[in-house]
Design a protein around this nucleic acid. Sequence first.
RNA 1: GCUCUCGUGGCGGAAUGGUAGACGCGCAGGAUUUAGGAUCCUGUGGGAGUAAUCCUGUAGAGGUUCGAAUCCUCUCGAGAGCACCA
Length: 834
Amino acid sequence: MAKKSKYDHRSIEAKWQEAWAGEGIYTPDVNKAKNPFYNLWMFPYPSAEGLHAGHAYASTGSDIYGRFMRMQGKDVFQPIGYDSFGIHSENYALKVGENPETIVPKTSKNYERQLKSLGHGYDWTRTVTTSDIDYYVWTQWLFVQLFKAGLAYRKEAKVNWCPSCKTVLADEQVINGKCERCSTEVQKKDLAQWFFRITDYADKLLANLEKIDWPGHIKLSQKNWIGKSEGESIRFRLVGSSEYIEVFTTRPDTLYGATFLVLSPHSAWVGKVTTKENMGKVSEYVKNHQQSAINNQQSKLKTGVFTGGYTINPATGEEIPIWVSDYVLEGYGSGAIMGVPSHDERDKEFALTHKLEVRQIVPDEGLWDIVEQKDWGRRAVSFHLRDWLISRQRYWGPPIPAIYCPRCAKEGKSYFSEAKGQIHADQNDWEHTGWYPVDENELPVKLPHIEDYRPVGTGKGPLANHPEFYETVCPACGSKAMRETDVSDTFLDSSWYFLRYPSVGTESKLEDRSLMLDEDVRSGKVGNRVSNFKLQNPDSHIQLPTSSLPWDPEITRRWLPVDLYFGGAEHAVLHLMYSRFMTMVLHDIGKVDFEEPFPRFFAHGLMIKDSAKMSKSKGNVVNPDPYIEKFGADALRLYLMFIGPMDGSPVFRDTGMEGMKRFVNRLWELFTTKPAEKSNKEATIKMHQTINKVTEDIQNFRYNVAIAAIMEYVNVLKENGASAEALKNLALMLAPFAPHMTEEVWHMMGNTSSIHKASWPQFDPDLAREKRVVVVVQINGKLRAELEVNSLQGQNQEEIEKLSKSDPNIVKWLEGKKVKKAVFVPGRLINFVI
RNA sequence: GCUCUCGUGGCGGAAUGGUAGACGCGCAGGAUUUAGGAUCCUGUGGGAGUAAUCCUGUAGAGGUUCGAAUCCUCUCGAGAGCACCA
């Protein structure tokens, strides 16, 4: 026989990638699909370095599931896009000194090339790029919806400030006191910022965790981050005043032991309770704690200062001193605590340091009710979760679509003084006076092209230096007004992208409009003025009808929520929490009909290289391109899926890659050998066992085990000969893992349509049954012999006992011993207890 | 400090109460080759033995069970998350 040609992955992979795109086999009919399955992978941000092996690993895991579901008869929609707006993209642009605007198209193009070269089945007709104007117009629209619903508010607060990124950060984006992006130590700064009222949804975010199919550890992270504590809010009357300080406690049962009260240095009460004599040292203490970041370390001594003021413990009626200390957090509870040194370690430390009274008491559960009955306080819950700070003092993001009118502010007017919609109950704590959302008809607020896009570090964004951007007119009174010059958090862009995908391309009006804007910008004539001056130009033909939604309601009903979300665990309390919140809000304001965006989520592990997590900052990234070139995408996919469980931490090694290439070559050899005339019995049994195992394993994301089972099957076929049917089913089972080679052999087998639209092989349990089985014989749980019997005999205890006792080995072991008991597991084992 | 997860050959890992180490990498021996590479075959947890076979073994100690890598308790080690949350 002539020497067979080697598998040429380069030409075959390129050929099919082109064919798939031409046939559109990964593009479902979004309007009519009968069995929709929305298979989503967390979209990447297109860094200039391109995809690394960790991305290839994760995206392949998602792709395999999508291909499997397609072969199960589902109309799979598997989209891809780029999270290209935001600080991560901008930081790179700053590093290389190029405007992010010009970098994003280049980097996303490179990503597209890489993702295609891996053979993923994405619907390339519906991509999303968060920095595109026809996307961020809707991100701005979302802000307006939240504003109108009373869920967006502006407030002066002590916020996390990254001195390197020169912007504020949300609590979730501060990791161990450091910036999530650049690991610089975060400072505290007083700034007026926009917040989303995610705390309103704390209870729902927590309760709904019960309803969703997510890995336990991700749910737990969210639960801990929400951090619900149930307790009581107890009122302590100030001595010589009718005012009360409220204190949150989870231990009202220890109220009798409260011998002092402690305020956070930032508490508004400090000024009110401090006596003249103590004012000096108190203000000095407070001043020293203005600058301190997050809060002070636990190990530090508990510093503090007496205010001179006293309050009354409602239970004992005694006057107790009021202190100030930085171990009390301003942002949690009411920023004040009751000090119970006998039952709280921290209070004890504080009391001992400052020689305060420690009173031994017996906790009394009855106090929970007594507090309420005597009106000392009420039941209360407190959360660790804080409102989501969305302002960023940067350039590369959607300008927050809000307008401040000094004249309205002077007159005490705001959007809510005119609005008919409901106003949030706690509106008192916002500083919304003078503020209006940009009218929906006036969106987008175009991010202008500017040269000085570098962050300035003054607490304002670069747009604040551009009057041509921020000068506008008040939507209410028409007088001169100013736009917000901060942009929004990148996590706002990604909090809704999954809603957009299925509807991409369905609103022609929107597309026309964005083309128009791009034209304007490119010509340099109009720039951002298109949106800025629309107010003065009501005839503008590029208005958006108010009835428009960023998603088509019919299509959304068909495809959402997402059937399977595949992504990394690092977003447990970031993207995954924000997206849940956003979806709940959209549900409550009637824009979508579900509360949970991702009822099923799978968290893949992080790839390890040189005993460290693969990341650009560690400098240990592996670019998949040379591996695809040398071994082929199929071999790389198989390798990545085989190295370990999908939720583990796979270690990238070159040697394993070569082994997988060998397997691919062996497969090709098998597929290109003339099939055996007759099917072999053993091979048929193995085939059905393999179908069963691989099907179950893929469903459970146990791809490494599925591939091992396929390898075993291949070994059996090599030994016993492979029939045409055996090869056909082998190709089908391999198709999700090695889409190119299986497509090639599928066509070689005479098929004219794609293997990826073929049906998954059927498992027949009768044909999978072994004719002979091995029954293990144990003595006191130890393996002493094996009996090979036919499967019928294996079910019969009497027969197995009889056979065991005639086995010379067992005879030896049972000699002179009395069998007390025999445990029989049909078809598996018998255990004699002696 | 608290919470959670995990400890299995030289390596990645199978086995989730029933034959520990599937499958692969690596390694060793052999075949083929002028040689190397590639490919194929055989072996491969440790120990004893020519061998059949036996002993031992899933971080360590104890427990439950006819039977434990798997369940329970403690100890040690690694990782992750939260971190003065009242």
